[in-house]
Design a protein around this nucleic acid. Sequence first.
RNA 1: GCGACGGUCGUCCAGUUUGGUCUAGGACAUCAGAUUGCCAAUCUGGUAACCCGGGUUCAAAUCCCGGCCGUCGCACCA
Length: 487
Amino acid sequence: MANYEQIIKLSLERGFYFPSSEIYSDAPAGFWEYGPNGVNIKNKFIDLWRKELVRKATMVEIDGAQIMSENVFIASGHIKNFSDPIIKCSGCKSTFRADRFISEKTGQEVPERINENEINVLIKKNNLKCPKCDSDFEESGRFNMMFKLGIGPNNDEAYLRPETCQSIFVDFSRLFKVMRGKLPFGVAQIGKSFRNEIAPRQSLLRLREFYQAEIEVFFNKETVNQIAGFEEIKDVILKIFYDDTNKELTVQEAINQEIIPNKLVAYYLVLLKQFYEKTGIDMEKTRFRKLSNEEKAFYATIAFDFEVETSVGWLELVACNDRSDYDLSEHSKTSKQNLEVIDPHTQTKILPQVFELSMGIDRSIYAILEHSFFDDIENERTVLRLKPYLAPITVGILPLVKKDGLGEMATKIFSDIKRDFNVFYDDAGSIGRRYRRLEEVGTPFAITIDHKTLEDQTVTIRYRDDMSQKRIDVSKIKEIINSLLNN
RNA sequence: GCGACGGUCGUCCAGUUUGGUCUAGGACAUCAGAUUGCCAAUCUGGUAACCCGGGUUCAAAUCCCGGCCGUCGCACCA
């Protein structure tokens, strides 16, 4: 298992990801680029997400705009809630979280949603000064985590979305109609979200611009226990961290003990678990953490975080929230549109509830890299033991030597298969070095062209994990790699 | 955003204390050639860096100021 520094080093050296605009000294923190290897693994991760979540659970996918109007975020609550009250010292310019600062100094409870006037009053009343330089505070303000934009010549107020899901909520009415929706109705989206983090840190783990893969399941709360696929998954064991203890229990038991509220939530938690099993993340180091009321986002009634243990601690990869009818109800009020639908099953008119799986793609990629990293001391190599279908390069084509026509033969094989897979051709240096380079970026298969190839049209295929080799016919290469990818 | 510490080839490190000998050195990686011909071999040669801006000085990688970035802590979070 690797640590954070090793992964960063590998990423920089081998082009997985690196800081954005790094040739400029004013490049702000929190923005990273995916390089060639990183893009491949990200795209393949997304392919897997589509296959194992979107298609498996029969959802639809959309691709919404990243810029949305002010009203969207008034309705969503982000204008009001997605910000922290702050106070700034007039002398040394130190900034403090107002609510925490006041309650610390006065010992009295200060609600997080406190407004600016109340803060100013409390500061005056208690004669609070800056703890560092004893100056007075400026008028209190709010720091909103959304990026504000001006649209058109009048600079109409708009924001970069802080989560992708608002597109799904505002589009719900049309989507339900045009897709002839039934409940539960799953809508998925991959895209970028933007948050003006105070202190972005740790590369892909806390970004200001990041990828989310979100799934919003609209459902009728009267039928949350009538879930078609539940029988098949009721004995699946989940690890749930709750009340400071780890519990391992079947979803049926979790429902019986009221840890999981209903079959619908259970179904999607299992779906998510099964997805992550296929990413190669070590499932022994994962858990669902049930959040307490204090930890939950402002829109959530029930929340589970899917977490994975890494060298930098437990990382939250997916937020699984029951958002109740909060979003549709607020959008309905603000837009003055009726967003109710008829549930075809019950023939009742309802405003659907929402259960979401909000996945951080960048963090997931990091976790996969870290869990795949293997320092193979015995064979003096480092290997990324990625699942073959996630590896940035699927197969390397290596002529044992350049001369004797082996180079030409290898080039021909390369041309024959390069549209089918991510293939990398390498004839530089010793064969052992070329194998090492490939396995360092997780390439699962290497085809070696040797002198025997010219005699009988066979090549060797080498497997990354055990370094074993097998002779196969040149004509079978595509077929064999395809079958290995589908394992 | 604050505080502490830090920033030198792709990566890791030496040089900064005491300004000049730095035309910035090494290792690994990389590129070219030779050699070998199935697991990071060897030889030869090459590419490649003082975070950015300003100041002090005859002279700055080295001292000073500002900015940016990084690590950690506070906080925030997918």
